[in-house]
Amino acid sequence: MAGIPMLRLAGVSKRYGKDVPALSDIDLSLPRGQVLALIGPSGAGKSTLIRCVNRLVEPTQGHVWLEDIAVTRLRGAQLRRARRSMGMIFQEYALVDRLTVMENVLSGRLGYVGFWRSFLRRYPGEDVAEALRMLERVGMPDSMDKRADALSGGQRQRVGIARALLQAPSLLLIDEPTASLDPRTSRQIMRLIRELCSERDLAAIINIHDVALAQRFADRIVGLRDGRIVYDGTPDGLTPAVLTTIYGEEEWSTAPAGDEESGGVGHTRQMPLPVGDAS
């Protein structure tokens, strides 16, 4: 099914209560293997968008297709089966603190094994072997019996990545992977994600605040503002004018005068494109 995109959203909207909609009428399609960065100001609906894909948030309207599966129509066991082919990586890592690293990684197999097997921690041999390989791959070969709360932020995010990949996903949903990390660790994590996507031909949607990192590591950029797509194109196309459309003119004007006059691209200036650290 080469012709069918990996993921397709049609007319997806989300409204919390009676408030202004968090998402309105999103159309998006993502081919296999493409890494898409979703940028936009806080509250633009980035988190809501990726949670609508695996239905951690229930969209009010519209449809989501994962290849030929209509995710928005699924219920119960079918939904869980669809979820296991969509790995998710979180901003605050979302590890279960009191479980060991190995248990956290193996929890990526929960959609595949039965309750008692998972409850007694008797995972099949190939799952354990794969978990060990993944820990090795993300650079944490020797920490499997440590408890998750004994790790540093970067290490936790590596465990979170290993967990998502253990699901053997075809799509990764990544929510602000670097927001809690320092700049150097952020770049390492983003590079790791990028490499893993290429190795396994994974499509990915990455929510990210940091425009420079998005430009550096993504194939395609989608800009979201007030729940609508206002930019969809290559990283090179992110001109100052486009950034103004995404992040909003009025935000620049509230900043101290004289600071933002050269095109109003505060974000890109604060974090210049890194050089010399490329993979």
């Binding site: 951690l56 869980r80 279960v96 603190d97 929890s107 595949y112 979170g160 967990r163």
Partner: peptide, 10 residues
């Protein structure tokens, strides 16, 4: 963590 565990298809 609850969200993350549901996202694995648990």
């Amino acid at each position: 963590p609850m969200e993350a565990v549901s996202a694995t298809g648990a």
